Amino acid sequence: MPNPATALNAAADKLHEAVRANDPAALGALLTPDAALALVEVLNARAYLAQTGAADFNPEAATDYEALRLAERILTPQPWDYLTTDGTRLRVIPERLPQHQGGSVVLIQICEAAHTQVTPDGPEFEMRTADVPDLAAALTARTEWATRDGLDGILVVRPEGDGMRLAYTVFARDTTGQSADVDRTMLVPEEQRQDLASALRRALDVALGWEA
């Protein structure tokens, strides 16, 4: 039976060779959801060995730093952000953790400027991937729609004026750092409505890619 550590080290070698060759196709083939996190762990360990002097055993071990940074950039999904004039931020970002079928989520964050003093992310609503298409469809059709998360949180979207009101309640830390039911709401202007729906669909594709 093949040794898993040997296989991972060989994959890590291929990864930093792909970095040096600037080969996007090879990088994409190596950084699959089932192997990516393990590869990052291997690169972390090898980079640490290089830092502590064990690089003498591998003259190119420093390349692991390069590969590690690139792997982290590839694995970190880029959020879609909308920022209001008062500093409130709406963010859509897929969770990037391996999950069982149907277990991944898309995170929706409405973060007020004052909340960044407690946490840079703010309270977030964890939307199940099964619900994301319905939210995107409601935004596209300008219709009211609501759902709950796996706990007691609730998210609602409804037409309001020329835009769409997005609101949710989750149990999280408030602006004082205390745990409480936190309400967040934002009026999504008409010019951002379709952009938000598109961002949700892209985040859904990424989240589903991490499901086993």
Rank of each mutant, 00 (worst) to 15 (best):
G177M: 09
L30M: 11
L200N: 01
G87P: 01
M164G: 00
Q101N: 11
D34V: 00
D34W: 03
T140N: 05
A137V: 01
T147M: 13
E211W: 03
P98L: 13
P159T: 04
G122P: 11
A36G: 01
V105A: 13
L90P: 04
P189V: 07
P33T: 05
A61P: 04
A5Q: 15
M127P: 00
L30A: 08
Y168N: 03
L151E: 12
L49W: 14
G177Q: 12
T116Q: 14
T32A: 14
F125L: 02
T6L: 09
H100Y: 05
L8I: 07
L31G: 08
A26R: 12
T85M: 05
R46C: 01
T85R: 05
W210A: 07
S198L: 15
G53V: 09
L139Y: 07
W210H: 04
I93M: 12
E144H: 10
A10Q: 15
P159A: 10
L8P: 05
R158Y: 09
L8K: 00
T176A: 14
D181R: 14
A71V: 05
H115L: 04
A180Q: 12
L151S: 10
E191D: 15
E144F: 01
R173E: 15
H115A: 07
G103M: 02
T143E: 11
L43M: 11
P189N: 03
P77M: 02
D183K: 13
E17T: 02
D34F: 00
P159E: 08
D183G: 04
R142G: 01
E211Q: 06
G177C: 10
T175P: 09
V106N: 07
L83A: 10
G87L: 04
P189D: 08
G53I: 00
F125G: 01
L135G: 08
A180P: 03
D23E: 04
R173W: 08
A197K: 07
A61M: 13
R96G: 06
T143Q: 10
T119M: 10
A212N: 13
C111F: 05
I110R: 02
T129W: 01
A50E: 06
R46T: 04
P159H: 07
Q109M: 09
P123Q: 00
L49V: 12
D174S: 08
L37F: 11
M127E: 08
A7M: 14
A167K: 13
T116A: 15
A138E: 06
D13K: 04
L196K: 07
I154V: 13
E124Y: 09
V19F: 09
E72L: 15
V19R: 03
L187C: 07
I154A: 12
A21Y: 07
T88M: 15
V19C: 10
A207F: 06
G28N: 07
I93G: 05
V206F: 06
D64C: 03
R193A: 13
D86F: 04
A18C: 06
D81I: 08
L151V: 01
A10D: 13
A203H: 05
E160M: 14
P189C: 12
R148K: 12
A199V: 00
R158E: 15
A137D: 02
T129G: 03
R96K: 14
M164W: 01
N58Q: 11
P133T: 07
Q192A: 02
A146C: 06
H16E: 05
A199I: 09
D13E: 09
L43T: 03
